[in-house]
Design a protein around this nucleic acid. Structure first.
Length: 565
RNA sequence: GCGCGCAUAGCUCAGUGGAUAGAGCGCUUCCCUCCGGAGGAAGAGGUCCAAGGUUCGAAUCCUUGUGCGCGCGCCA
């Protein structure tokens, strides 16, 4: 029996639930936050007369300073179990905590309906800083409860055209998610599915052929200047077959997409060709569906009974014409991912694919898999704005804005930060004027500036990269800005865990901005260089920890952390 | 019509059961003999779409309604 005990933070309106830990857990023995959390859980369990703290017990960072450094609702949650009123329970928990934490805690006050407001000593804050620096590059890493082998399929833009806005958001999200999952300890495979098979490929080849011969593209063909460019780049294009043109054209488009992703700093490990599934794996998947009794013939077509697993209607695998559908090969693709040992599949799809979710999960289940281990993530649309006006067309070409256009315009850092900034399930506006701005108005510059400023301070302090070592215990009374900054730093591992659990990398951009703002307050209140030696050493250590955590946060989003700007 | 998503400050958005709902932008007013002013401080600005329900406690969970987006093909 394991009851969840969660720590949350609550400051400036944010409330995050994080890592769940059961009472008495020994993990992160040297992590002051984990120790505090464990002490609260243990005290609550003891007072409630239970083995574990009651579910729903939280440790929060109150936004109101009068509510202490940390606060817990343990007493209110435990009261029903303890058959006592919350304030009495709170007093008992406070007594237990005082005994358990000793000098680390300076006060535990009962407040309001039964909140317990805790204040920690400066020595405890010193231990937080020591923990961050001791952890070094692994601070916040490996927080995944149980490491999994996860496949993240993203972008998968059709190789019949350039990457547009939606692909940019998809790429920024998928790459950031992959990075943070890997950082948290999962084994992650990043994959791009190349749709190089089927009717669209034929239309693509026909379009190139038409342009190569100076004809108009067919009614159902692909329009756009890039078709002319591809036709011109293929030797003797006018005399090649449409099929050959399609093959060469797709190769070129993939190279273009690869180049665009490179410019964004997006890494793809596996470029998976749909066509290669036809070597037998495709037939194998269809056979498995048939043997499982999930497919049937009707009206000369082959159908999958997806309604068996919650879809609205059954779906066609093989058309009456004999051609297979995109859906059919996609099923084989998912079977292949599973066969390659990935236990969890995350598919990052565009908004127009949300109707595809139910059928794909049904198909995955038909293959004998747990549908919960296939997670389609739907990216909502992106609108571009400029000075409040909606812009969707490129000024240069008059066509839809491509990712390359945006990279030319606002750069990779701004593109990635802005695209990840919003939760994937909300339609977002990207303000080009703001993204272009090279000032504090622009959030990505704000965070990068804080990092550069810390680097400058450390240069001035002559700190260099010397041994991080254990910083001296604070010899001075800490400034409230120092405590606030250390609390924010200490929150990082929980933030990583929560970002992973919710598949929500946009949290990282918020955390980065909050950490940068917290540093700015520290910078305003606390001088580093020129202070007495012990004070300077302690503050340089704070700078080092903040710099590294800011850099890590930016890196997980795929944004650079410049040492000077 | 059905399905999925969304609805929070003038704008763009955080916030998936806790105390007085936050940030950025915009607006108003301040701060450079100061380790980077690419910065900081203060202020104005809210029926958290509506109505019910669950709870000691709801922006958050449940129902219904409204509005917006997207999808509903033997396309991909």
């Amino acid at each position: 029996m394991r009851s969840a005990f969660v720590i949350g933070c609550r400051r400036q309106g944010r409330c995050s639930i994080a890592q769940t830990v059961s009472a008495g857990s020994n993990e992160h023995r040297d992590d002051p936050i984990a120790l505090l959390r464990a002490a609260v859980a243990s005290a609550a369990a003891s007072v409630a007369g239970a083995v574990d703290a009651p579910a729903g017990t939280t440790l929060e960072r109150p936004r109101n300073a009068a509510h202490g450094d940390f606060a817990t609702n343990a007493a209110m949650v435990s009261a029903p179990v303890a058959r006592d009123n919350p304030r009495n329970v709170a007093n008992k928990i406070a007594a237990e905590l005082t005994a358990a934490l000793g000098d680390d805690m300076t006060s535990a006050e009962v407040a309001g309906p039964g909140f317990l407001n805790l204040r920690l000593s400066d020595d405890w804050y010193g231990a937080v800083l020591a923990h961050v620096l001791d952890s070094g590059a692994s601070f916040g890493a490996g927080v995944a409860g149980r490491p999994e082998k996860i496949n993240v399929e993203f972008v998968s833009a059709n190789p019949t055209g350039p990457m547009h806005l939606g692909h940019g958001r998809n790429a920024a999200y998928g790459d950031a998610l992959s990075r943070v999952l890997a950082f948290a300890g999962h084994e992650v495979g990043r994959e791009f599915y190349i749709n190089d098979f089927g009717s669209q490929v034929a239309r693509f080849g026909a379009s190139i052929g038409a342009r190569a011969r100076g004809e108009e593209v067919p009614e159902d063909g692909y329009q756009g200047g890039y078709i002319d460019e591809i036709a011109a780049a293929i030797d003797g294009a006018a005399s090649l077959s449409d099929a050959e043109l399609a093959t060469q054209g797709i190769h070129q488009m993939i190279e273009r997409i690869r180049h665009t992703l490179d410019r964004m700093g997006v890494e793809i490990e596996t470029w998976f060709s749909e066509r290669t599934l036809l070597d037998g794996r495709f037939e194998q998947a269809l056979q498995a569906l048939s043997e499982g009794g999930h497919s049937y013939e009707h009206d000369d077509a082959l159908w999958l009974r997806t309604t068996e697993f919650g879809d609205d209607k059954d779906r066609v695998l093989r058309r009456s014409s004999g051609e297979y559908t995109y859906f059919a090969t996609d099923i084989a693709y998912h079977a292949d991912k599973r066969a390659r040992g990935f236990e969890r599949l995350i598919d990052v799809w565009g908004a127009d694919h949300h109707g595809y979710v139910a059928r794909m999960k049904a198909a995955y289940q038909s293959l004998g898999n747990d549908p919960d281990l296939l997670e389609p993530v739907i990216m909502q649309l992106v609108n571009l704005t400029e000075g409040g006006q909606r812009v969707q067309m490129s000024k240069r070409s008059g066509e839809f804005v491509t990712v390359d256009d945006l990279l030319d315009d606002i750069g990779a850092d701004a593109l990635r930060f802005f695209m990840v900034q919003r939760s994937h399930d909300t339609t977002m506006d990207l303000d080009l004027a703001l993204a272009r701005e090279q000032s504090d108005k622009n959030p990505v510059y704000y965070v990068q500036y804080a990092h550069a400023r810390i680097c400058s301070i450390m240069r001035k302090a002559g700190a260099g990269e010397g041994p991080a070592g254990a910083p001296p215990a604070p010899g001075h009374e800490l400034h409230e800005s120092e405590r606030a900054l250390l609390r924010r730093l200490a929150e990082f591992p929980d933030e990583i865990a929560e970002t992973c659990a919710r598949r929500a990398p946009h949290r990282l951009t918020i955390y980065g901005r909050d950490l940068a703002a917290e540093f700015s307050a520290f910078y305003r209140d606390c001088k580093v260089v020129g202070e007495p030696e012990a004070v300077q050493a302690f503050r340089v250590a704070i700078c080092r920890a903040t710099r590294d955590t800011l850099a890590r946060t930016l890196d997980l989003v795929g944004v650079s952390a410049p040492q000077s700007m």
